[in-house]
Amino acid sequence: MIPTEFDYAAPESLDDALWLLGEGGEETRLLAGGHSLIPLMKLRVVVPTKLVDLRKVPGLDGMQREDGSWRIGAMTVHSELEHHPDLGLLSRAASTIADPQVRHCGTIGGSLAHGDPASDLPAVLLAAGGSVSAQGSGGPRTIEAADLFKDYMTTSVAPDEVITAVHVPALDGYGYGYQKFNRRAEDWAMVAVCALVYARDGVCEDVRVGLTHMASTPLRATAVEEALRGQPLYAGSIAEAAERAADATNPPGDLNATPAYKRHLARVLCQRALTEAAGLS
């Protein structure tokens, strides 16, 4: 299986990339690590006329901590996240993406722009309350994670915009848990749940829960968060809150998981992720 024909450019500045993107029309696509895009092109599900490769564009790499938040260049690959000592939940989630070879190529910016609800990073960004910086013909703007994911593989990044950086609050002092369920280690998540918990004196002062593959977009499990916030953290309160993990979800079913099974998994995994995040496991 091979892609259809397309033209290719590897601009050396962001301005050039934006110009190429704007000039190329709707079927021009950005190429970052290519590990979401190229498989779809090989299957001829996506048929771009032109690819604009961001590989040579400066300023899209690197990870710095700024004002309690991590700025992560959009071209940062998953393996860099995985092996970073201070990224906590993000690092853990990145370590479960596909396999080592894919993690050497796939990028955080590409993954978020792709907006696949079965991918690991979107729900993490959502739960952490992060954002992305995007640059387009209209200049730079910040898109909050809550506004980023619009529908199945659809984001609010405009066709002529480039994600340049990802901002993830450091959330110092938060415990985290990540529970990904798949049949085989290299598979996409059937369901995954990430949890961030800030506790003081055994009481849950803050909690954020993200759900992967429980709808056409990643979701926050707000019902769980509301049920647990302000409550003492123990097995019973976590179990009670986790019961609400599938509220307001609309999980897509497939051969190996009906919506009912996925709702069940969300509750089980939520309990486990919260338990882990609360340090009770």
């Binding site: 049949r183 085989r184 280690a185 290299e186 051969l255």
Partner: peptide, 25 residues
Amino acid sequence: RVHYDDDGQLVTGTFVDYSLPSAAE
């Protein structure tokens, strides 16, 4: 599992859906 839906369409048409066990399994 090789699975066809009721229309005779092959649901498990690639190695993504036809799950050979890996070393991790």
